[in-house]
Write a protein that binds this DNA or RNA. Structure first.
Lengths: 165, 165
DNA sequence: ATAAACTTTCAATAATATTTGAAAGTTCAA
DNA sequence: TTGAACTTTCAAATATTATTGAAAGTTTAT
């Protein structure tokens, strides 16, 4: 396979994957590009490579930085900002786990904590309490697993799991 | 908190959570409703409760069945179809893990297997190979974890992880 | 202070995804 | 068969989300 073809497929696939994980396509594609680049890239270079506008580029680069997946690089003697991505896949995984936990799991747990307290003794309400308590338990367990993953550095998490197989 | 309020919040939250996980809001809400219902629900009941059209209801109920999250219930003497959801949260987790693995992870692993074979010895291509191989490794490890989770019945998975904390 | 180089914002537009609802299709009892 | 009861389809309408690009904002060298 030619490099140009492989690269195209890779960026395309990363974008698609991003979409089905609540990350917008462009953000994922910028990330994909930064991941394989040997040098930090400027806004212009990202615009050119992905054929996207300046505004879009700026917006999504900032989103990537919010997610802790990219950072600014200042090149001495240059006014322009360059961007690079952390290439350590484990760090990326941890970072994504951390952010999604904060943005999605934590609010749901908070909500479940509230609504499981609903009062009443009709069959309907009893069932509601039962189901939401189960969900609460599951969410809390998931939280523990994520915390374990987030705290464990390097490959520790996978190594342990590998032994269980 | 009143039951009606708790129920509303729960359905709303489940819909939002669905959206950020690549599942459409309505599908998630139907699932939420079926989860807390003490009896199977008909298309009409779902339409009424969620204020959605017949077509939408039909489409999303079928999607839920595709995901293995709901099933038809035939009530003797009734022409109408009723639907119920599996309420075992572990089964749901396993089902979702299984489907997403099949729909998303498997294709990405396949792609990575292809593109890591890109030939060339420029710095660019070498970096590309390095990054994609790392991703491949990570994806494969993730796959193992998911398989472990999918195969482990009941709470085994969480129990084991709990001990590691 | 000025202006060039650069970044950010945001209203307008475009692209995408979801929803509707009426028509077509199916099933089944009579 | 027929027609009532029910399900499915899908083109059109609506809602949501992403993108553009020009204007406004910022920074820095002189």
């Amino acid at each position: 396979m030619k490099y140009s073809e492989a690269k195209e497929k890779y960026i395309q696939a990363w974008g698609t994957l991003g979409s089905s994980w609540g990350v917008n396509r462009t953000m994922a594609q910028i990330h994909a590009l930064l991941m394989i680049s040997t040098v930090p890239l400027s806004t212009e270079e990202l615009m050119e490579e992905l054929k996207i506008s300046r505004g879009n580029t700026n917006m999504n680069v900032r989103a990537l930085m919010d997610w802790g997946l990219a950072e600014k690089v200042l090149v001495p003697g240059e006014r322009k900002e360059y961007f690079k991505a952390d290439k350590n896949i484990m760090n990326i995984g941890v970072q994504v786990a951390k952010e999604r936990k904060r943005r999605e799991l934590d609010p749901i747990i908070k909500l479940l904590n509230d609504i499981t307290l609903v009062e009443g003794d009709t069959a309907e309400v009893k069932e509601f309490r039962k189901v939401t308590k189960d969900l609460q338990k599951f969410a809390t367990q998931t939280e523990s697993v994520l915390d374990l993953f987030i705290k464990s550095n390097q490959n520790w998490f996978f190594k342990i799991l590998g032994k269980l197989r």
